[in-house]
Nucleic acid binder design. Structure first.
Lengths: 150, 150
DNA sequence: CACTAATACGTGTCTATACATTTAATATCA
DNA sequence: TGATATTAAATGTATAGACACGTATTAGTG
C-alpha cells in the first residue's frame, strides 16, 4: 500500500497540513476496515464494541446513557440507539434508576463480558498486524495526536 | 480538551498501541466534526467535498465512477450514490461513455468549481485553527501515518 | 407553591458506511 | 460463434453519524 499518494492515486498535496487531513481520514478508514474484519463474526460494530468496553471499565457499577455518550469516541453518535442494539443482543441490561427516573442505569451482562473475553485475543493480534510501527513510534504518534487537538 | 484520557474520561490504556487506535478514532471524529462545520453551509458532506476535489484534479478529463471509488478516502463507500447526490445539486455531470457503455463519465460543472473556490478560503483557515501542530510536527505525523499502514 | 429552566433520554429524518446482490455490457476462450 | 467470466454501475438493506426536536422528570427561582 505504501504512500498515501499511491493509495488514493493523488500526485501531490498543496501543503503538509492538507496532506495530514487526508492522511488521517484515510488511515481511519484503514483501521476501521481492519477492526470490522475482526468484529463482524461477533456481530458487533466498532462503536458497539467500544460501548461494551466502556461498560466493562465500570467494574459492575451501573452507568447512565449520557455518561456512555460522554465516553464515546464519536460524541455526535447516539448512545440511546446503540444501547438498544446491545440490549437486543442480551449483552447489556437496562435498569430504571430509582433516584432519578429520567436516567437509565446500564450494566454489561455476563454474556457481554464473555464476548469481550473472546475478542481479546483477536484484538491483541490486531495491534501487531495492523499497526506497523514500533513502540517508540507509537508513543510519538500518541503525543502528536494529543497535541494536534490542542 | 487536552489529553485523550480526559476527553473520553478513561484513566489509562492497556498499552500504547491500544491507546493509538482509540486516539486515531477520536481524532478522526474531532477533525470530521470541524470539517462538517465548514461544509454544512455549502450543503456538502465531507466525502462529497472529497469527490469534488478528485474531479477538479482531473482538469476537465472525464472520470468513471469506479475511478472515483479508487481515489476515495473511504474505499467501502459508495461512489455511485455520492455521484447521484452531486448531480442533483448540479455540481457534476454524467455522460454515457461511448467506448464502453457500462461506464459513466463524470465531470465537475462550473457550478461545482465555483463552490470549491468559495470553500478554499475557509479550508485554509481550517488547517491553522484545527491542527495545532507546527509544520515540522505535521511532516513527522505524515511520515508516521504512512509507515503505520505499511 | 407555580413557573421556568435544565437535564436525561428517546425519536425522526437524512446522509453515509458496509456489504451483498443485481443488471447490463464487454472480454475471454473453447 | 456461443457459453462463461469479468467488469461497471446501480440497488437493497442494515447500521451508524449528524442534528433537530419531543417528552418526561428534576432543579431552580420568584
Amino acid at each position: 500500500m505504501g504512500s498515501l499518494e499511491e493509495a488514493i492515486k493523488q500526485k501531490e498535496f498543496k501543503d503538509p497540513y492538507n496532506k495530514l487531513v487526508v492522511n488521517l481520514l484515510y488511515t481511519h478508514s484503514y483501521l476501521v476496515s481492519a477492526q470490522n474484519g475482526i468484529l463482524k463474526p461477533f456481530d458487533l460494530s466498532p462503536e458497539q464494541y467500544n460501548v461494551l468496553r466502556i461498560l466493562r471499565g465500570q467494574n459492575g457499577v451501573p452507568t447512565t446513557v449520557s455518561s456512555i455518550q460522554d465516553r464515546m469516541l464519536n460524541k455526535m453518535s447516539n448512545a440511546s440507539r446503540l444501547v438498544d442494539k446491545l440490549k437486543a443482543k442480551l449483552l447489556i441490561e437496562r435498569r430504571e434508576c430509582p433516584s432519578d427516573r429520567r436516567q437509565v442505569d446500564i450494566v454489561i451482562t455476563d454474556k457481554g463480558l464473555q464476548v469481550l473475553n473472546e475478542l481479546q485475543a483477536y484484538m491483541e493480534g490486531f495491534n501487531n498486524e495492523v499497526i506497523k510501527l514500533n513502540e517508540e513510534e507509537v508513543v510519538m504518534m500518541n503525543t502528536l495526536l494529543d497535541k494536534l487537538r490542542g
